[in-house]
Design a protein around this nucleic acid. Structure first.
Lengths: 234, 234
DNA sequence: CTGCGAATTCTTGTCGACAAATAAAATGCA
DNA sequence: TGCATTTTATTTGTCGACAAGAATTCGCAG
């Protein structure tokens, strides 16, 4: 093991430790750097981040609240598993939230929201051109997250963000297998959605969002439908 | 102040402390025993529950994750405020979730789900007969929570539960003013919803759920619309 | 060699204490 | 008396340590 006890600066500001651990763990979970089911050792993390177990523990509690880690009493916490049996509930939920948030964005967006959305789409198109699946996954999440926030309903936004994060893990599995397919289609659909929002065409935004979601769900279903028969994932 | 340092049994099982504090604080927040904006002192709670600050802190972090308390860095945590300016987003969200979860319940419920739902409704009718608003609020929450669980989509269930909890606080304000009005109507609507679920009539379940939500929203809007002009709530 | 039980190791849950940051009080000055 | 500044006090964030519970290892008998 490498001697990396002091991976981060010696002195941090008071209160910044938890956020650091939280964000880093969260990112490692969502990128599958920490695979589902992997045990999370507190003292291990404490040494790695050069701090006590207390802030690590707080970060884990927050992650558990978002469903990204599962805690068993008196036993090690583990990275939340992806329940493939309940994947259809995820598809239902994200389809509905895509529709609702895009509708609301068409209704309530302001000029600066559109700017932010277009900026994400530009980065997305670039990632497609670069054939960079990891960047596409992350930017796709930001794209829809910004649309959700433009809808200005914190309850819908919160659920959408949670679903988008969960989706990052699922998409990641998808692209690990089909890492050559590059969905130019998605980029075009994004452009159409932006146009509908800008035109404040609620009905069109709804329809495009549903088609966009259906498109993604169809591809993932096709992928898993083929693979699940061969070997059962963890 | 009463000498109640040992409010609970001397020895508790390892790991049960956080749940105790979490559930008790949560209940006090939702019943407005702890009013919105009230500061939450950690050492105070530690003395009251006869334990260290560590488990209290963990409970507070969990409650903050659910949006029931707000934490400011290096400052006391406070009971989450009710943002009356954004009440319409709450109405939109709960209306949609009522519809979605009731639809799904009509599709996916099992025999035991209906039993549980009917049991809640019986208790609700009893609370109406007893003119017990507090019981009505709590049972109404359980009624819709059970329907949501019968829909078997954990994402929708989670958001619905969060909205129902937030709704408890809002309804509580409502009944504190109109504590004589007893909504027999709601009880009838509940019966109709149960019938639609039992008949697996998805379209009817959707329509009834929407009407039920609209009914509640209309009454609360009427209540707040009148009062907000007179005195601005905290 | 194998299955069962006891001892050990390892990890978590909780505690008390200390330091940083903020709030409150006291002091000085105009 | 009013305001700015210093001092005190209160409250949170973090730490190291200890004990309870679970996992593992070890020993022993069959």
């Amino acid at each position: 093991m490498t001697e990396s006890a002091d991976e981060f600066g010696a002195e941090r500001k008071r209160g910044s430790g938890v956020r650091l651990v939280y964000e880093m763990l969260r990112d490692e979970i969502l990128t599958l750097a920490l695979p589902p089911g992997r045990p999370i050792d507190e003292v291990n993390l404490a040494e790695r981040f050069g701090m006590s177990r207390t802030p690590i523990r707080e970060a884990l509690v927050r992650l558990a609240g978002e469903g990204l880690v599962e805690t068993l009493p008196n036993r090690s916490a583990i990275v939340a598993n992806i329940d493939f049996m309940k994947l259809h509930t995820f598809f239902d939920a994200i389809t509905l939230m895509y529709r609702v948030t895009t509708r609301l964005a068409a209704e309530h967006h302001r000029a600066e929201d559109l700017e932010a959305i277009r900026a994400h789409q530009a980065r997305y198109a670039q990632a497609v051109a670069d054939q960079d699946p990891l960047a596409m996954i992350a930017i796709n999440r930001d794209f829809h997250a910004t649309i959700a926030e433009a809808g200005r309903n914190p309850y819908f936004t919160a659920l959408t963000l949670r679903l988008l994060d969960e989706g990052r893990r699922i998409l990641r599995l998808y692209y690990q297998s089909f890492n050559d397919r590059l969905p130019q289609e998605y980029s075009d659909e994004h452009e159409a959605i932006i146009a509908a929002i800008a035109a404040r065409d609620v009905a069109l935004a709804d329809r495009l969002a549903k088609e966009h979601a259906d498109q993604i769900v169809r591809q993932i279903k096709h992928f898993f439908g083929r693979d699940l028969r061969q070997d059962v994932p963890l």
